[in-house]
């Protein structure tokens, strides 16, 4: 099983609902966020293009954060989700520095925090909070090992990209372009 998220940049309006839904669902303290929105505009007025992306941890298959963690707190979980065991984390911040996506932050409780793909919700058969709330339905979550899953189908049918593929992290956030 290989969990992945596919995000349609053509639909996303950048409203940040995914951000606040994650914050409330996971009780992320005010001032911190596990996901965020990036808007990139290119060109010169009036010849412009815009891409909007809802970004978060890429749940990399070759995760530098897991490799560099001195205590084994950062680890691979079911479906390839990269998780942090808060009790094992000493807050050294090596993972924060190693992540090319800047997806981790120091939680005020002393450990490092990041997106979990809402594994507590997945276990109950629900979608991650960000996917479930999105008003434009631009986000899809599923199992890449299942060729019949919506994420697999979308990646077969549509053009997509991943972020910083040259880092060799094998990310599992896919952006439809």
């Amino acid at each position: 099983m290989r969990y992945a998220m596919v995000i349609d940049t053509k639909k996303c309006v950048g409203c940040s609902d995914c951000v606040v839904a994650c914050q409330t669902e996971n009780k992320v303290p005010i001032g911190y966020a596990r996901d965020w929105v990036v808007e990139v505009t290119t060109g010169t007025y009036p010849h412009l293009q815009m891409e909007i992306r809802s970004e978060r941890c890429n749940q990399c298959e070759n995760a530098p954060c897991v490799r560099c963690c001195p205590t084994g707190s950062s680890h691979y979980s079911t479906g390839g989700i990269v998780l942090v065991k808060p009790r094992r984390c000493i807050g050294c911040g090596a993972c924060i520095t190693s992540c090319p996506y800047d997806a981790r932050f120091p939680h005020p409780k002393g450990h490092v925090d990041k997106c979990t793909f809402c594994d507590h919700r997945i276990k109950e058969g629900n979608q991650p909070a960000c996917v479930e709330v999105c008003p434009t339905r631009c986000m899809y979550f599923g199992n890449l090992d299942d060729p019949g899953s919506e994420v697999s189908k979308l990646l077969r049918q549509r053009r997509y990209k991943t972020l910083i593929p040259e880092a060799g992290t094998k990310p599992h956030l896919y952006f439809l372009t």
Partner: peptide, 9 residues
């Protein structure tokens, strides 16, 4: 079933 960010917040 989908509130906007203001409703979620």
């Amino acid at each position: 079933g989908r509130l906007c960010p203001r409703g979620t917040g």
